[in-house]
Amino acid sequence: MTPFLKVDHVSKSFARGTATTEVLRDIDLTIARGSYVSIIGHSGCGKSTLLNLVAGLTPITTGAILLENQEVREPGPDRAVVFQNHSLLPWLSVYANVKLAVDKVFGNSKSRAERHDWTMHNLDLVQMTHAKDKLPAEISGGMKQRVGIARALAMEPKVLLLDEPFGALDALTRAHLQDSVMQIHARLGNTVIMITHDVDEAVLPSDRIVMMTNGPSATIGEILDVALPRPRKRLELSSDPTYLRARESVLKFLYERHRAPSLQAA
């Protein structure tokens, strides 16, 4: 069987004038359909760069990314991105933001009424139907992030790419949104790749955790499988030995073997 998503010996360098900096070196990763994969690493190591490569937003320097045996060359709705800062279009209402994506992806395959229903269905998934006519400026940060997730889900992507989707949120909202993303993943079975800084956020929902070494020329340091049964409950897991072991090995990787560059210098 061919893998669902294959990142095949990918390197990425940014050229600026004559100087080039290699940000990622030789990233090799296969991801199974329907799995939840977290990418964790210190700030600036190149996580967003890797996600943008998979999204097709930045061109690959060497190597290739294959999604269902098709080479990824440009962005497209089969790899929907939830950006770190929500990136809703501020002049469109919550409804219109999601509807824009729905109209674009299903313009030919669904009728007008079906597209409306599908938009409402996805807003309902993230519990945002009550604010559908509000502008992004009129809703809270957590709500914006939920609408961003609804917009991405509405595209029925093969892969859902989340770039620190909860980074700007307070702890309570964060936990709440993590739970709803986990529920949606359980319900729809889509493949998720999520970037995070946070150890618990990585361990709780993931099947696998990809830990990256520090840049420049960052690469995959270690991949950890989290063999916990689903559905996972935040409170029950907080004392579960498997969970705690997974948590500890991520912490060890980040804070002993690959400390933040600034801390190493100190």
Binding site: P75, G76, P77, A80, S87, L89, A101, K104, V105
Partner: peptide, 27 residues
């Protein structure tokens, strides 16, 4: 760049990009 990325992921064509992103954003 965020809005450009959104347009790229949605594969908006030039005309759609002009009306849906450029004009409102630069309004």
């Amino acid at each position: 760049q965020d809005y450009r990325n959104v347009a790229a992921v949605l594969r908006l064509n030039h005309l759609e990009f002009f009306w849906r992103i450029m004009i409102p954003s630069a309004a």
